[in-house]
Design a protein around this nucleic acid. Structure first.
Lengths: 218, 218
DNA sequence: TGATTCTCTGGAACGTTGTTCCATAGACAA
DNA sequence: TTGTCTATGGAACAACGTTCCAGAGAATCA
């Protein structure tokens, strides 16, 4: 019954950690059962003893990242502040692990999304809303938080190499400026706002906006 | 120079139409160059003369669906109403073609997302906001609209088979109720709200909420 | 201790995928 | 007719997720 104790024994946890490392360094397409097996110095078949398939592995990896992010959220005095911190935690986690975003948008109501929903909901319960309003508020916040975080992560990492990010946004701005003037007047006009944009600040402002709407409708 | 006029000649448009049909009937994994070739009565290689690769084909298919949805949006008296109609158009398009959602979340700032951003932005220009606020408002709305639409589409089609949808939500509610009481108190309590939920109504309410926030900060 | 059972391993093999390559068919220009 | 260019479709390739299985190692039993 006790699991075998070979040296460096394979385990579900070690597999998930290796998968996260692979996804972080090689990108979304870098996770391959062959690459994973090489990294773990084993064969592809052995991995299937601990993990059902690639989908389950991706869910588990996202779950680990989001779970860790949520556990790192400090306690707060008010529900409003707590929700803001949860939002920032998720935002930064997806920014640091962009593949989590792509993974999450294909399984709402399940592990990774459900955990965020739960944390948000618990704070909303303290806000004295009727149950239907709690559900609406939690859904709205969840969609906004995950939606913005995914879009942000697509623009490159926020903290680690700020150069890459600015360069990427500058390049996107140039592409917008080169668009057809008749078909895309707004994108052309607004392109200047793109580089050097305070994404995290605007994100939090959006959360506050939704929260004030929720509290006003109470 | 004039393209060959064999009967039923292959064309980029015919390929995209076939791809959309395949995605709609067979799901996200149903789009295969072999299946596509069979459907078009040709070989896989011929398709590559008109389309660079699968990614471009998916972008083009999403672009066609979203473009069609945006073209179908009726004119409105006020910017607020126009934005609401754009939101509903996108929501229903993604609901009818769920694969569009998964596709869009991997390319913000490019064709399919950019078009929605442009339409939203043009309405916001009429609202007399300073440019930075226009950018923020358009980004917030875009993230919310696409985020909620994707999540909604994951729960099954809204109109076509209402039975499937209710059954799916009922099943999800049961799974939530079976969760660990200590770890997921909110999800368990709120599970009853899940089936029979007016998704479109709540979605529009969320849009109105953000819009009122935007107008209030003017 | 030795024999047996079970968990776990890792490499080979299968079917499918996206993509490339190329001989060549059809339409047009000279 | 002859030659040129666009377009075709089938064969071939590498890489992937997954399955399969012979057997290594640990645990259990006699």
């Amino acid at each position: 019954m006790a699991p075998a104790k070979r040296e460096q024994a394979l385990s579900r946890e070690r597999i998930i950690d290796a998968a996260i490392a692979l996804l972080d360094t090689e990108g979304e397409d870098g996770l391959t059962f062959r690459a994973l097996a090489t990294r773990l110095a084993t064969g592809a078949g052995a991995i299937y003893w601990h993990v059902a398939n690639k989908g389950e592995l991706l869910v588990a990896a996202s779950h680990a990242v989001i779970g860790h992010a949520l556990d790192g959220v400090a306690a707060s005095a008010t529900p409003h502040e707590a929700i803001r911190r949860i939002a920032i935690g998720v935002f930064e986690a997806i920014d640091a692990h962009p593949w989590v975003g792509a993974q999450m948008s294909r399984a709402p109501g399940q592990p990774p999304m459900l955990d965020i929903f739960e944390r948000l909901g618990r704070q909303l319960q303290a806000l004295d809303l009727p149950e239907p309003a709690q559900f609406t508020a939690a859904s709205t916040l969840l969609s906004y938080i995950v939606g913005v975080s995914i879009q942000n992560a697509r623009n490159g990492r926020l903290f680690d190499p700020p150069v890459d990010r600015d360069a990427h946004l500058e390049q996107l701005a140039q592409r917008w400026r080169a668009l057809d003037a008749h078909a895309y007047p707004f994108a052309r006009a607004i392109a200047t706002q793109l580089p050097g944009h305070d994404d995290l600040g605007e994100f939090v402002a959006g959360v506050d906006l939704i929260l004030s709407g929720i509290e006003a409708s109470r």
